[in-house]
Amino acid sequence: MRSRVSFEREAIPHLEALLRTAVRISGDRARAEDAVQETYLRAWRSFRTYQPDTNCRAWLFRILLNVLKKAAGKKRRDPLAEAEEVEGSNKVIPLFPDVEGGNRQDILAAVSHLTPEFRDVLWLVVVEGFPYKETAQMLDIPMGTVMSRLYRARRELRRWLTAPAVAAKERTPGHGM
């Protein structure tokens, strides 16, 4: 039987993580709250199929990402192709120089400037701590793509935090990003 009590026990503890992720991805608090509520509605509808021993958190995140993706609607650009355009030469440059500047807001602002595909992977792996495999399942992409996007997301973030003005200029239309 569909149990409200077990649903609350399993699903509600993940609400804060879902909400902060929704805020970060949607960029809007009201839309994030709507998305989280829709996530719980969908989760409740399919809760009868949920296996108690499976990862409820990953399951909820997958629903949330689908909700957010549907809400976003428009087709996204190919971030990997774009990243390749600006990656440049093979010379050894710091992947992630020791960026000590910037407070929490700076960091989160930099994250929000990432291409959505890069941002989503970075957030799920680094902030929410999901393994690559679960992240790949949630985003419905191969694990190799998770690895590739994560590498580039970290690198892009470094660009924003070391020279945000330059990065902003490069990301405007006509600058290859």
Partner: peptide, 12 residues
């Protein structure tokens, strides 16, 4: 980034 991202948000 983890600390910044996981900081409590209002209205939960």
């Amino acid at each position: 980034l983890r600390v910044a991202g996981q900081a409590s948000i209002e209205g939960v």
